[in-house]
Simulated assay, not measured.
Amino acid sequence: MTYTTGAITGGMTSLIGASGVMIIVPILTMFFKVNVHTAIGTSLFVDVIASLTVSYSYYKNDNIDLKSGTWIALTSVIGAQLGALFANRMKEGKLSFSFGIFLVIGGLSMFYNSFKERNDLSDTARGLIHFKKEWQKISAVLITGLGIGILSGLFGAGGGVMVLIALIILMSFPLHKAIGTSTLIMSITAFSSAAGYAARDNINLKLGSFLAVGAVLSGILGSRYANKINEKTLRSVVGICFMAMGIAMTVLAIIE
């Protein structure tokens, strides 16, 4: 099951730039009986490896612009440490419940967006926000990065999808370059969060290593064929799965 879970994680990262947290955490907590803090820390560990593998594939196709995304990466690292600190102070049941709600919201978001073509989203989004001065744009990006980092540290999400949206809306990135850049930034944010969890001994390296093997293999294959898969259908299926797992985790947290 660990290899399969890792494979799904790598595939998601390569195809839609999403963190594997929504798959790994429910699997580890519900089937491997790992406490939620360790499950989140382990998911971040896998995220680092999977996103680095995927971002390298995008880099080879000249679809990464780290210079423009550096602003988000800087504050996301700080936010990730804050999030990890908050998570460590939360009780097990409360964190499980919060993560379940987060999972349901993420699934609803993905399912809703599956009805919109991504290209249409990017074209529309570029017209939503206009900055008259450069400092306004930079300030917005810095605040966005901080928020993404806090969510990453709190829930174990590397923030790939959130970074992707920020790059498209705030920085007018072309779609493929936004995916590649957001994946690389996700690896940086996830590393910062993982370090925070590791310092508190909340990473299972054995399980994480097995998961990472599957994530790397599927990440490489997924990156090669990313443009050949119907994204609309994929996002609908993944969104439904996320909502189902989120509801399951929330119910279990309430029962326990």
Rank of each mutant, 00 (worst) to 15 (best):
K177W: 05
K177A: 06
I179H: 06
I179V: 10
G180R: 09
G180P: 11
G180A: 06
T181G: 07
T181E: 09
S182C: 12
S182K: 12
T183V: 15
T183D: 03
T183P: 07
T183C: 02
I185D: 04
M186Y: 13
M186N: 12
S187V: 15
S187W: 14
I188Y: 03
I188T: 04
T189Q: 02
T189M: 07
T189P: 08
A190W: 05
A190P: 05
A190C: 06
A190F: 09
A190M: 03
F191C: 05
F191P: 03
S193F: 00
S193A: 15
S193Q: 00
S193G: 11
A194T: 00
A194P: 01
A195V: 14
G196R: 04
Y197E: 02
Y197P: 02
Y197K: 05
A198I: 08
A198P: 04
A198S: 08
A199C: 08
A199P: 09
A199N: 15
A199I: 15
A199D: 15
A199T: 15
R200K: 13
D201V: 13
D201L: 15
D201P: 06
D201F: 15
D201T: 14
N202M: 12
N202G: 07
N202S: 10
N202K: 14
I203Q: 12
I203G: 06
L205W: 14
L205N: 11
K206F: 10
K206S: 08
L207C: 07
L207V: 11
G208M: 06
G208T: 04
S209P: 05
F210E: 00
F210S: 01
F210V: 01
L211N: 04
A212I: 06
V213M: 02
V213W: 01
G214M: 01
L217F: 12
L217A: 04
L217K: 01
G219P: 11
G219T: 14
G219F: 10
G219W: 11
L221D: 03
G222R: 09
G222C: 09
S223C: 10
S223K: 08
R224S: 13
Y225C: 07
A226S: 15
N227Q: 10
N227M: 08
N227T: 11
K228Y: 11
K228V: 04
K228Q: 07
I229C: 01
I229A: 02
I229P: 02
N230V: 05
N230D: 12
N230M: 04
E231S: 14
E231H: 10
K232W: 00
K232P: 00
K232V: 08
T233R: 04
